[in-house]
Amino acid sequence: MCLAVPARVETITGLQAEVEVGGVRRAVSVVLTPEVRPGDYVYVHTGYAISIVDEAEAAESLRLWAELAESYTTEELFPHMAPSSER
């Protein structure tokens, strides 16, 4: 029920936007995200954009996890070199 999918905003007309998700274009309401701009990604729930994707935060999450992945591999390969405190 709380499902929401990321979609790219193509055009905005008043409180309605046309978004693209997985190659399909759909009309959604942006009444709950009035500050949205074309080119933004939004999470769409039951025909309404409920949030605008924070691209910087998305990139930061992936960067942190990639860092973690690297540290993990190093530790696995060289357990004696593992840092005493993580993070």
């Binding site: 973690l68 993990y72 993580e86």
Partner: peptide, 23 residues
């Protein structure tokens, strides 16, 4: 698709699982 596929990366998932296991 953007904001979906990159959050399903198996290598990163293994790294997170490894961290959970260790901690």
């Amino acid at each position: 698709m953007k904001y979906i596929d990159e959050f399903r990366d198996p290598d990163l998932a293994r790294a997170l699982l490894g961290r959970i296991e260790r901690r």
